[in-house]
Design a protein around this nucleic acid. Structure first.
Lengths: 214, 214
DNA sequence: CCGTGATGTGTACGCTGTCAACATAGTCGG
DNA sequence: CCGACTATGTTGACAGCGTACACATCACGG
């Protein structure tokens, strides 16, 4: 039914997205070269313009694909076991942070595309409260949604005072996002995986401690 | 003496750097378009190749200029006053972090150029200890040097246990670097300056608490 | 005064994204 | 069943980019 099928090529749009995913996976956003994508699909460069406004449009669509993909990749991961609900809530937040960093290190191209590409109208923009509104229009990117949940969990577990909840996303996100970038392009680039992991844990632990009021 | 003076143009190299600084200040690394730079100086595109290997070479040189500039911009700022040396050391670290963020927000183009441009052989790469060696070859970029000092200060003041000192740079840098990027291109972009400032302080405070063992 | 090296110019090539005009292939109304 | 219409893909062109190569020009040292 909605199986969009062959005109000349047999759904090109999908093929272009697929090619875009492959290219950006290996080389980040800058590897999405329009002529490359079309070449790889075996079609003329301008064919892309029947399905996307321009290069930026294609890029944007690939970004959305990656963000969906990521939702799957960050499997539920189960709430960590343990009796103490406070400890469990903390562990949850920790897991979210490490998950973010893991994704960035495992899929650097996609990470950069989805979360570190400048000039990309990403981000709904926070509401008046300076914390994410809990019922905004566009669905949050998966990792951010999980962060929001984890922080709410901290409040529920009594670890985080409710008046400290709004805006608590930013220190957390800042730390893991910054770490990912330092590890990918910054001074930590090329460090052995084990050391990197320890540094990541330390960073996450620090910010978790910091946010939950020491 | 070293006053490189007129051949045809009267030191071009300097003029190119100057133009590069202007362009990147307004538009970040991607605004450094070789043909733009030379046009602005009133010279043919290829003239640049007498002074730089290629576009990347010019870019690299501009980066170094910016990093020098930054040393001046981050004026000593004086050690904060106060009796308690522990509190003073903490305040020092806090000031370094906020200084980093301030610079990023005040000079987004230069910040991105000097600290957030991918594929730029920035970063000496940490030594075996996973903390910066205290006597490496190339001089650290100014803000990082100040960070190192602040952390050493924490140890001296007895706030940070010496065995926790190595690698303490990364949580700190991660947080402020990440925050700067979220504020420039991420979800915090466009937030009123005052709110931004509060979020920045919260982020810095969190990581300072987190690093200094809660 | 002339050669020699440093410096800037001119021309050209291949690459990019994108526009306008055209061709084709499916769909649908009569 | 046939012609019109629309969706889709191709061709050719343009401007702009970084850059390689050959040439012109200037300053200076013998």
């Amino acid at each position: 039914m909605s199986e969009a099928r062959a005109y000349h090529h047999g759904n090109l749009r999908e093929a272009l997205l697929e090619a875009g995913l492959q290219l950006t996976r290996a080389g980040g956003p800058s590897a999405l070269v329009l002529r490359d994508v079309t070449r790889r699909v075996g079609v003329s460069p301008n064919a892309a313009y029947r399905h996307f406004a321009d290069r930026a449009g294609l890029l944007q669509a690939v970004v959305e694909r990656v963000q969906q993909e990521m939702t799957a990749l960050m499997h539920p991961d189960g709430t960590p076991d343990g009796e103490d609900p406070a400890a469990r809530a903390r562990a949850q937040l920790r897991a979210v942070g490490l998950g973010y960093i893991d994704f960035a290190l495992r899929e650097p191209g996609w990470f950069e595309l989805a979360f570190a590409a400048p000039e990309l109208g990403r981000a709904p923009g926070p509401g008046p409260g300076s914390g994410y509104d809990h019922a905004p229009g566009p669905p949050l990117p998966a990792p951010l949604a999980r962060l929001v949940d984890a922080l709410d969990g901290l409040v529920a577990a009594g670890v985080l005072r409710p008046e400290e909840r709004p805006g608590a996303e930013w220190p957390c996100w800042s730390a893991v996002h910054g770490f990912a970038l330092l590890a990918l392009h910054g001074p930590l680039r090329g460090l052995p995986a084990e050391e990197l992991r320890r540094s990541a844990e330390r960073t996450v632990d620090a910010v978790v401690r910091g946010v939950t009021g020491g």
